[in-house]
Amino acid sequence: MKDVAFGQYYPVNSFVHRCDPRLKLFFLVAFIAAIFVANNFWALGACAAVLIAVVALSRVPLGKVLRAIRGVLILVIFSAVISVFFYSGETVYWKYGILCVTREGIFFSVFLIIRLFLLVICSSMLTYTTTPVALTDGIESIFHVHVLALIMSIALRFIPILMDETERIKNAQKARGADFESGNIFKRIKAIVPILIPLILSAFRRADELGDAMDARCYMGGKKRTKYKKLTFSWRDLVAFLTAAALVTGVALLRVYVGGM
C-alpha cells in the first residue's frame, strides 16, 4: 500500500537510475521522435536495440518491464486488428465489403504494435528509474516553477497516509456493521458517507497542521528559496545524450536512404 507513493519506481542503483531526470525526459522525447520517424524495420530495429540496452542497464527485472506492456496489450491488439482490416494497399490477400487484408496493412499493423510497445516500455523505463520527486524536480528546473515540485512532494508524502487512513476508517465503520459491498449504486454511494466525512475532516486537520509546521520552518513561498539537491549533468548524461542524438540521426538517415518498407 505504501509503495503507491513511488508510483512504479523500482528502487535499485543503476546507470539509468543515476542519470539526470532532465536528460531522461529529453531521451524519452528523442526516442518517441525516433520511433515515429522510423519507417523501415532496420530503423525500428535500431530503436529496439537501444531500448534493450537501456533496459539491461537499468537492472529493472524483465518481468516488471513486460508488465508495463500488459496494461496496454488489449489496446494494442485492438488497434492492430482494426488497421489490418481497414488499411488499404496494393497486394490484396482477402476482401469482404469494406474489410480487406493487404500486405501493406499487415506490415503497418506489425509496425504499429512494435512502435506502441517501444513507446510504452520507454516511458515506463522513465518511471521505473526516476522517483516522481526527481521527475518533478526535473520539470521544475526546465520550466522554473517552484510550487509544482512542492505540491508533488506533499501529495506523494500524504497519499499513502490518507490511503492508510481510508482503510482504517473503513474498517472501523465495517466493525459497526457498515456494508460497502452490497446494494444498488445509490445505496453504495450513501454507504461511503461514513468514510468520506471523517476522511475529509482528517485531510483538513492534517493540512492545517502541516501548514503550521511549514510556517514554523520559515516557509515563505518561492522567493529567496534555495535547493539542497541541485541537478547536475555528469558523464552518464553525456552518454545518454549522445545515444539519443545518434539514434535520431541514424533513424532519419535510414528513412532517407533505405526508404519505407
Binding site: R168, A172, A175, R176, I197, P198
Partner: peptide, 29 residues
C-alpha cells in the same frame, strides 16, 4: 456480519471516525 455484532471493536483514536450531524445519529449508526 453477525460476528461483528457480537465482537465490538474500538480502533485507535476512534473519535476520528465520527461522521454524523448529531451525537445521537452517530451512536445509532
Amino acid at each position: 456480519y453477525s460476528l461483528r455484532k457480537k465482537v465490538g471493536m474500538v480502533f485507535q483514536y476512534p473519535e476520528y471516525q465520527l461522521f454524523a450531524e448529531t451525537v445521537k445519529d452517530d451512536v445509532a449508526f
